[in-house]
């Protein structure tokens, strides 16, 4: 059986038992197993249906109406009018570019920085317990003060960052959040900071999960630390890396309140993220139908991007499986 077939829907025929099928051994489930699976999933289904799927569907349906948030609303189905109108909204699409830079930059930097930190936290240095807790500090800061604190740190004339640079003899008058060239990088740093704990913890747990035997075997084959990282650590982490990067990307693309408090989209619109438009349209203009169309567009774009990413990741997975088996 070849790799290519694994994307087919499961057919009952020859799956069972074949060694080559082990990656998805349980997919050849008979009916009893399927029921077992359903029993495992069922408890999560009810709250999900009532509290998530229903409101989501409702939100998506609104995209095809002219709904407004007035008292006793009365709205009509307007087909794809909202989408046609949105296609001509240059502000929204401009912010898309900024949103992409922001989301890709934050996600990648987070990943690289968190991978490094997780490795360090996993390499048996002293005070491991303490450093692990310190690494989680961004999680412990209540979100209401995060932006306020960073604004103070970045303050051009009363902030510790410039004071520190000044003490090193570097320029001490950089207006981090208000200079047209530094504003976006400065908020990206805050974005990375905010997301570090969760990426680090996730990867740290992933590292813990790698059987020690794999490293030992590689070490016995004479592989150095660097070689082992590429040959053992990364491949073993792959499913977790895939999961956390895709989620981080979604969250980053979706966030706007942190950046909004830091810069209000300024200076001159350099940090205006697309979700701000959805918010303004939905709540400030109360055109919930049009706003829902923006939401649907965001979903389509992000899901398409992720589909490409996840597919390529999964393909690599399969190739690897094949190699191992071949």
């Amino acid at each position: 059986m070849t790799v290519a077939t694994s994307s087919r829907p499961p057919t009952p025929v020859p799956r069972q038992g074949g060694r080559s099928d082990r990656r998805r051994a349980p997919s050849g489930l008979d009916r009893a197993r399927r029921r077992e699976a359903a029993a495992l999933v069922m408890p999560s289904l009810l709250p999900i249906l009532v509290l998530s799927v229903a409101p989501l569907l409702m939100g998506v349906l609104l995209a095809f109406t002219d709904a407004e948030l007035v008292r006793r609303p009365d709205y009509q189905f307007v087909g794809v009018d909202n989408f046609v109108r949105l296609a001509g909204n240059s502000f929204f699409w401009d912010s898309f570019r900024i949103g992409m830079i922001w989301a890709v930059a934050v996600t990648l930097l987070q990943l690289v920085a968190a991978l490094g930190l997780a490795q360090l936290l996993n390499s048996g240095l002293r005070l491991q317990g303490l450093t692990r807790v310190l690494a989680l500090i961004p999680w412990a800061m209540p979100p209401v003060v995060v932006a306020i604190m960073w604004k103070m740190i970045y303050s051009p004339n009363a902030g510790p960052l410039n004071a520190f640079l000044g003490s090193l003899g570097l320029p001490d008058d950089i207006n981090w959040l208000a200079d047209f060239s530094t504003a976006l990088p400065a908020v990206i740093v805050v974005g990375v900071w905010v997301g570090m704990p969760q990426t680090t913890v996730t990867l740290l747990a992933g590292l813990q999960q790698i059987p020690a035997e794999l490293h030992e075997a590689a070490a016995m084959d004479g592989a150095g630390a660097w070689r082992r990282f590429w040959a053992v650590t990364l491949p073993s982490l792959r499913p977790i890396l895939t999961s956390i990067t895709s989620l981080n990307f979604i969250w980053n693309f979706n966030s706007f309140s942190l950046v909004y408090v830091l810069t209000e989209g300024g200076p001159g619109g350099r940090t205006m993220l697309p979700m701000l438009f959805t918010y303004l349209e939905a709540f400030k203009n109360r055109n919930i139908g049009y706003a829902a169309a923006m939401g649907v567009v965001l979903v389509v774009v992000v899901v398409l991007l992720l589909a490409v990413y996840l597919r390529s990741q999964l393909r690599d997975d399969r190739v690897e499986t094949k190699k191992k088996e071949g």
Binding site: S52, I250, N254, T278, Y279, A282, A291, G295
Partner: peptide
């Protein structure tokens, strides 16, 4: 994926 991407203000 959809539940994470779709803006909370609309839900």
């Amino acid at each position: 994926l959809v539940s994470q991407v779709f803006p909370v203000v609309l839900v």
